[in-house]
Amino acid sequence: MLTAVGSLTVLGITLGTLLGIAAKYLAVQGDALEAELEGLLPGSNCGQCGFAGCKAAAAALAAGNAQVTLCPPGGRAVAATLAAKMGHAFDAGGTAEAEPLVAFVHEGRCIGCSRCIQKCSSDGIVGAPKQIHTVLSDACHGCGKCVSECPTEGIEMMPIPVTLATWHWHKPAPQAIDTRAKAEA
């Protein structure tokens, strides 16, 4: 009886001590994960994820308080890279890619108040007081803050038009098709 209890106790204490010593020598430095996740996010601090900027979103992701699908401007591509960094599998099938939108200023309604310029975090709107404003679509990440700011409702979110330079073939249909049939559009 005593030998049983005694030997178990000794065993437990020995193993515990050894593990404690190992833990000290094999300690892992502070979590670099958060910084890496922040690097993967778009960095435009648009706030569509609900967090106060990309740094806060990365912190939430690292802590496990947010999904990898939290970033609409990043789309499926960013969600996949975040999942890869965190070692999760990412099932793209469940998510629908929101069509990217850019802002567009209806020049007939613009009064040149410049309130939209104050809100744009990526300098995507050019204009001066009392001059007509316009959106640089290459710099617009589609957060939509300018839309709510405009007093004349002169800004609208529109899908990015496809040009000859950006068009590409669609994915072939999965069901059985006949390659001799009339070519689809």
Partner: peptide, 11 residues
């Protein structure tokens, strides 16, 4: 102490 086998092994 054969009866302690499973316990100690798991430990």
């Amino acid at each position: 102490l054969g009866f302690l086998r499973t316990l100690t092994f798991i430990l």
